[in-house]
């Protein structure tokens, strides 16, 4: 990469006195003084949340109501402020999603620690954790701000699924001549 030396223009006398600039600046601020107000009056007016907004991290279920998280703990690993804490657990062998084998027994996100970086969403191999449009978090105690699994699913709700990975797997297994134990 070549460096281009840009010659700075010498300042004129008017510029060196700084006064025209100050005056110009005053005119600009004055225009705003009489101009339109751009502030959003928050509780009454709500901002429009753009798609891809990184709000509170949540857990989602697939359209069949199955919890998508398999407690791989990658988010726990990647989380820079260590806000996530997962206790993995095994899915009992007789449920409808028994073939998934694993699901979180406990899943906690400490919103006092969360920095909304979105790495958990990015790293999730199951597309189970999403930073959605909830941006206002408050509580009266520290405990209240630790979202447990139930709260996370309540916040996350259900999102459309493009893959149905595990359902396909189950279908393949049940179609296979080998009995699925």
């Amino acid at each position: 990469m070549s460096v281009i030396q840009v010659q700075r223009k010498p300042l004129t006398f008017a510029e060196r006195t700084y006064l025209p600039q100050v005056f110009g600046g005053l005119m600009i601020t004055l225009r705003h003084f009489f101009g339109r107000r751009v502030t959003l009056e928050y509780p009454e007016q709500r901002p429009e949340i753009a798609p891809g907004y990184r709000g509170v991290p949540t857990l989602v279920k697939d359209p069949n109501g199955r919890e998508k998280c398999v407690s791989c703990q990658l988010c726990e690993f990647v989380c820079p402020p260590k806000a996530i804490r997962i206790t993995p657990g095994e899915i009992s062998g007789d449920g409808p999603s028994a073939h998934v084998e694993k699901a979180p027994r406990e899943f906690e996100i400490n919103m006092l620690r969360c920095i909304y970086c979105g790495l958990c969403q990015e790293v999730c191999p199951e597309e189970a954790i999403f930073l959605q449009n909830v941006y206002s978090v408050s509580g009266y105690s520290r405990d209240e701000l630790v979202n447990d699994k139930e709260k996370l699913y309540q916040l996350g709700g259900t999102l459309p699924d493009r893959h149905f990975k595990w359902d396909k797997k189950q279908a393949a297994a049940s179609a296979s001549p080998i009995a699925h134990p």
Partner: peptide, 10 residues
């Protein structure tokens, strides 16, 4: 107030 108005705020 003045600073707000000068900056287009309320």
């Amino acid at each position: 107030k003045v600073s707000a108005w000068l900056q287009g705020r309320y």
